[in-house]
Write a protein that binds this DNA or RNA. Structure first.
Lengths: 227, 227
DNA sequence: CCAATCTCTGAGCAAACTCTGAGAATCCTC
DNA sequence: GAGGATTCTCAGAGTTTGCTCAGAGATTGG
């Protein structure tokens, strides 16, 4: 089980992320400051670090330098405010690290984590980045979706939504779950957006037979092959 | 796996270069001064050396002489300030060595490394230096690009951009990734330059059908053959 | 040292996307 | 089958994102 260290001083965010990652099948440890982070790196030996750059006791980037000096090779995913100085991010994606701007959606964060982890694995043992259900295919890496071989153009939100449904194919997801994962965590609107996007998705991928997106009345939605 | 030794006393630069080279599939060792460099040459037996000429403890050129006296035949790529005495360098690069002026772009450095390595390989085992996608061809060595057989004139930045996209054909690259690789490492501007250059590229290579440069809204760009 | 070329900036414009709200359609219960 | 609840669909407002262009500044080559 892949170990991930989450470093964020905002407890709510840290908890939220930790939850999502545990559900996604990772082993997670959370700390709230740089000092604990260094200790955790030594003891917990994480294989990836999710790091808020706005830490109270030490600049996130300085911390990374120190950690890597300590011998960790774990890639880092930085959490940063959307309008933060992009300059500081420069040079970051060279080593396969990445960053996600706040507020993010959990779906997006988990996707980035998967991409970074894949890049850091020896090329041979890498799985494919393609997910399938019936004749529907979704490629994480190239953002391509095809149904029955035909390419389908999806917007970003549509893509995230389909991705989340696909990861949980066969399992019924409640509206709340979907909103919490696919939309940014500070999204204030109601579930009608979701219905709208389900409608869009159906137009794009379910104009072919058989339909894959199914409504479970009073509960939520599932992606599955009907029998 | 080709071994490359990076000699630079600026830790940030050395790290940056090492990262980029590892991602490009080389085995890398980094040292920060001339003494360690000589030791590393003996133990690590690099097949190419990237050497900063502004070393604190010994003049880079003197070092090369000594190294070659030690029996290394590894070609050298010098890193030098842009306004440094170019004559000295010209004299040294006759042996198939090369130089890159700081600040460089990673794309450029890696390209030079590939060219130098290719020159040093026995003529028989050389691969081609031409990359293709559909009817688009790009030759690393001669800096020539053709689309549908027609030659296309590209400026240096356009060439680097296309090259980076082509190496990663089929994979969506974020703006940050592209800026980090194609632009010089101290570039401080924002992504609008990139958009401008994408526009230039499209005018030059995508006025033919089918278009190869595709925008993935909210994410970045891909080079791919549409289906 | 001048001219040509290249790079980058900024602003205006265009297109695409997200979300809202309201009415239509569907489903379920009684 | 009526009525209420739920879900679907659509059009449009508002926002975001990307494209293009002209021109200033830098660089290169003669």
């Amino acid at each position: 089980m892949t170990r991930i260290l989450v470093v964020d001083d905002e407890l709510n965010i840290a908890e939220l992320v930790a939850m999502a990652l545990k559900v996604a099948g990772f082993e997670v440890k959370t700390v709230g400051n740089a000092r604990d982070a260094r200790a955790a790196v030594r003891e917990f030996r994480p294989e990836l670090i999710v790091l808020d750059v706005g830490l109270p006791d030490e600049d996130g980037f300085a911390l990374v330098q120190r950690l890597q000096g300590d011998g960790t090779k774990a890639p880092v995913i930085f959490l940063t405010a959307r309008d933060a100085i992009e300059e500081k991010i420069h040079g970051l994606t060279v080593g396969g690290d990445d960053y996600v701007t706040k507020p993010f959606s959990l779906e997006e964060l988990v996707a980035r984590i998967r991409v970074v982890l894949r890049r850091h694995q020896p090329a041979g043992s890498r799985g494919s980045s393609v997910m399938k259900l019936a004749d529907l295919e979704l490629d994480d890496e190239s953002y391509m979706v095809t149904r029955g071989g035909e390419p389908v153009e999806l917007t970003r939100t549509e893509f995230r939504l389909l991705h989340y449904l696909l990861v949980n194919a066969g399992r019924v997801l409640t509206r709340a779950q979907i909103l919490d994962h696919v939309w940014e965590y500070d999204f204030g609107g109601d579930a009608s957006v979701l219905e709208t996007y389900i409608s869009y998705l159906r137009h794009k991928i379910d104009k072919f037979e058989p339909p894959l997106v199914h409504t479970v009345r009073g509960v939520g939605y599932v992606l599955r092959v009907p029998r």
